[in-house]
């Protein structure tokens, strides 16, 4: 009986110690665990041009310029975290999810005239909605995907494809009133 109790306390103590050790270690290494740096971090202290960094942020709306040099497409776009923006130059085919307003991670090096990416990864957010619902939100002016994340989930996550289609069909959308409650701040 007492042996079992002692064993229980021993196990609990070991788990607590281990948890504390792991937490401290993670705290110490947390800057290395980060997968990407933000544009404001790069702006504050630019990494040396020989070091490969991953730059993460949102593609600024209207900043994407595509051109072709022979066969290879070249894209230029600004990546921002809301405070600073860095211009990225990338040679190659961008991933399917790439668009203005999308979060991306660009792998490459920082030069004087901007960031030269050797790889661009698209980072999608945790928002899952049918195409039709997204269209309806865009049409009603609640959301423009180029400028930020969608409005609060409660305002659309129960909207069905049928509701969305109803909203889309008549441009003024007088019928679908109950399904799309007018959320006050279309915040981003």
């Amino acid at each position: 009986m007492t042996r079992k109790t002692r064993r229980l306390w021993l196990v609990l103590a070991c788990v607590a110690c281990l948890g504390a050790a792991a937490a401290l270690m993670l705290k110490a290494f947390s800057s290395d665990i980060v997968f990407f740096v933000t544009p404001s971090q790069v702006a504050a202290s630019a990494p040396p041009p020989d070091r490969t960094v991953r730059l993460g942020g949102m593609v600024v709306a209207g900043s994407v310029k595509r051109e072709k040099q022979g066969e290879t497409p070249i894209a230029r776009f600004d990546v921002t975290d809301g405070q600073a923006a860095v211009t990225v130059r990338y040679e190659g085919i961008l991933p399917d999810l790439f668009r203005e307003g999308q979060s991306v991670v660009a792998v490459g090096t920082m030069h004087k005239d901007g960031f030269v990416a050797s790889e661009v990864l698209a980072k999608h957010d945790e928002t899952y909605m049918p195409k039709e619902v997204a269209e309806a939100l865009k049409k009603s002016g609640k959301w423009d995907p180029r400028f930020g994340p969608p409005p609060s989930a409660a305002s659309w996550n129960s909207m069905t494809v049928q509701d969305a289609k109803k909203d889309l069909a008549p441009a003024g959308a007088p019928s679908g009133a109950p399904t799309a409650p007018p959320t006050s701040p279309a915040s981003n």
């Binding site: 945790e126 909605m129 989930a153 129960s158 069905t160």
Partner: peptide, 8 residues
Amino acid sequence: APTMSSSM
């Protein structure tokens, strides 16, 4: 609220 459509 889940940031996912209920249909998913």
